[in-house]
Computed example of a mutant assay.
Amino acid sequence: MPVLKKVVKTFIVRALARYHSPTEVVAMVKETYGLDVSTSQVVTYNPKTFMGRSLSREFVDLFEAERKNFLECEQEIGISQRAVRLRELDDELQRAKKRQEPRWIIKTLEAAAKEVGAYWNAPSQQQASGPIVVFNAPQVPDGVDAQCNQLQSPAEGSGDA
């Protein structure tokens, strides 16, 4: 295990506080600093784990502050913004059209409709405008309606109240 400089340790603590997995952090450290670290070494910088229980107070405080900031600043995450999600869906739709993938086009359009609320909210926003009309319904013989009504209404004097 390489000995890490404070800058790398801080980077690891912040990444873990932002809910990156240890495996993701290993890849991030490799990409950013060119260092090979193990997942077990990374886990020691998470005070919420058993292996991180002996983390210095400085890094524990940094972890807690970074986690609190991360959870409070939802607006800084692009995907949490509706406009960003719609733009990504639009980009995906354009790629699907170029590749001529009708199934993917339909799925992307459906996802966009869900995002704007048209897909899920439209049925609940509709209001009944009158009685339901059924076309091509079978004809009911005379007298059957009266028999059905008698069966559906409780018998008088049955004691049900």
Rank of each mutant, 00 (worst) to 15 (best):
S40V: 14
L4H: 05
E92V: 10
L35I: 15
E76P: 00
V116E: 09
Q41T: 13
F11M: 05
V3M: 11
N149I: 15
Q125H: 07
Q126M: 13
G143F: 06
E115C: 04
Q147K: 09
Q139A: 11
A65F: 04
L109R: 10
T10P: 02
S129M: 10
S124N: 09
Q139W: 03
A118R: 00
Q127I: 12
S56F: 02
R14Y: 00
D61C: 03
D142I: 02
T39K: 12
Q81Y: 02
A113G: 07
S38G: 11
I77W: 04
I12C: 01
I132A: 12
D145P: 00
S129V: 13
T32G: 01
I105E: 15
E92K: 13
M28N: 06
Q152G: 01
K30S: 11
E74N: 02
K30N: 10
C148T: 12
D142T: 11
Q126P: 00
L86R: 12
V144T: 11
R85P: 01
T49P: 01
S56Y: 02
V3N: 12
V26R: 06
A112M: 14
A83Q: 09
D36S: 13
M1G: 11
F135C: 03
P47Q: 09
T32K: 13
V140P: 00
E76Y: 11
P138C: 03
R99F: 11
M1D: 13
E156Q: 11
N121A: 10
R18G: 02
S21A: 07
E115Q: 12
A65P: 00
E88G: 03
C73D: 13
G78V: 07
Q139T: 14
R99M: 14
Y19V: 06
V26L: 05
P102E: 14
L16F: 03
V84D: 08
I106Q: 07
A146E: 15
L16I: 10
A137Y: 05
E64C: 01
S124L: 12
P141H: 09
A137Q: 07
L109K: 12
V37K: 03
A17H: 03
E72P: 00
P138H: 02
A118G: 08
Q150D: 13
L86E: 14
G34F: 08
V25S: 10
R57C: 00
R18V: 01
Q150H: 04
R87E: 15
K9D: 01
A122Y: 08
E31C: 06
E76N: 08
L71F: 04
